[in-house]
Simulated scan of single mutants.
Amino acid sequence: MFEVVPRQHLTEHSATVDLAEVQAPQQASDYGSEEWLTFHDHVRYTVESESEQFNASGE
């Protein structure tokens, strides 16, 4: 996250960033689309399965 600092508060330990040049993060597919749901469901089930296996192992 970038913080916009008024110029009078800049020090040698500060940096300025042109927010117009910073690209917003992009997702590979549109939120809520069939492709997005398929991918995120798969990831969620994988993580839940691994968590169950870890917890069942008693570690």
Rank of each mutant, 00 (worst) to 15 (best):
M1C: 12
M1D: 09
M1S: 12
M1N: 10
F2W: 14
V4M: 10
V5I: 15
V5D: 06
V5S: 05
P6S: 14
Q8Y: 11
H9F: 13
L10P: 09
L10M: 15
T11F: 05
E12I: 08
E12C: 05
H13C: 10
S14L: 15
A15E: 10
A15H: 08
D18E: 05
D18N: 06
L19D: 01
L19S: 03
L19K: 01
A20K: 15
E21F: 15
E21M: 13
V22G: 02
Q23R: 14
Q23I: 09
Q23G: 06
A24S: 12
A24T: 13
A24I: 14
A24N: 13
P25M: 05
Q26M: 12
Q27C: 05
Q27D: 04
Q27M: 07
A28S: 02
A28E: 04
S29R: 05
D30Y: 10
Y31L: 03
Y31N: 00
G32R: 00
S33V: 04
S33E: 03
S33C: 04
E34Y: 01
E34L: 02
E35A: 01
E35F: 02
E35D: 01
E35Q: 01
E35S: 00
W36E: 00
L37Q: 02
L37E: 01
T38N: 03
T38Y: 04
F39L: 09
F39R: 13
H40N: 08
H40D: 08
D41V: 08
H42Y: 14
H42R: 13
H42A: 15
H42S: 14
V43S: 07
V43F: 11
V43N: 09
R44N: 10
R44P: 03
Y45L: 14
Y45N: 10
T46Y: 09
T46F: 11
V47E: 07
V47N: 04
V47I: 12
V47M: 08
V47H: 09
V47A: 06
E48G: 02
E48F: 11
S49L: 12
S49W: 13
S51L: 09
S51H: 12
E52S: 05
E52C: 05
Q53N: 10
Q53D: 13
Q53W: 07
Q53L: 14
F54Q: 04
N55K: 12
N55R: 12
N55F: 11
N55G: 07
A56M: 14
S57K: 03
S57A: 11
G58P: 00
G58S: 01
G58F: 01
E59W: 12
